[in-house]
Amino acid sequence: MFLTLVRRDLALIARSPALWMPVLFFILVAALFPFAVGPDARLLARIAPGIIWVAALLAALLPVETLIAPDLEDGTLDQLAARDIPMELVAAARILAHWLGFALPLLAALPIAAVLTGMDAATGWRLALALLLGTPALAALAVVAAALTAGLRGGGALAGLIILPLALPILIFGVGAAAPGALKLLAAASLVTLALAPFAAAAAMRQE
């Protein structure tokens, strides 16, 4: 049943006109920053991981208005609930599908971003590992915020306000991936977020 739900979410993502938006946005940010910072290659290389993490966080947030709200409006959640399918399962499937839909293309685009920001290979690999560990938590937070704001006017902006403080630990440990133990802390923060998110999202989706 979980796989049926994931497959369906992926099919919907693949047909969405916004499929390439997060990764395009990500590359755009990486391309613009060198122009904004100016021709100081050392400075750029030092702030590159931070730029890329912020770009990844915002890319995870881009589709937040289409993650849960359409299912609430068109009765999909009603049909799922009438079948006694646990909302936790629905939320977990949505998190996995959202992660596959935004983080995998983003990781694929990482080499381009690395070149654009003049990152060296060692930093690039470390960043890739950190993004692999941290992006599932970003996907989970996006789904929680989407569930909390579904059905509200201007929910997307509110979702951003909900996510940003919660994403801070991920961002801090992710950007500091070079420090000893940071990756382990990142993995731990990511795991805690992933473990709690389906329950938080489900509680919001069950609102009557």
Binding site: L12, D74, G75, D78, Q79
Partner: peptide, 22 residues
């Protein structure tokens, strides 16, 4: 219910198959 729970971009068969699978 009053809402159709049919996704605009999916074909009718894909939609009904999904629910029948569940």
């Amino acid at each position: 219910g009053h809402e159709t729970a049919l996704k605009p971009r999916m074909t009718l068969l894909a939609e009904l198959t999904h629910w029948a699978r569940l």
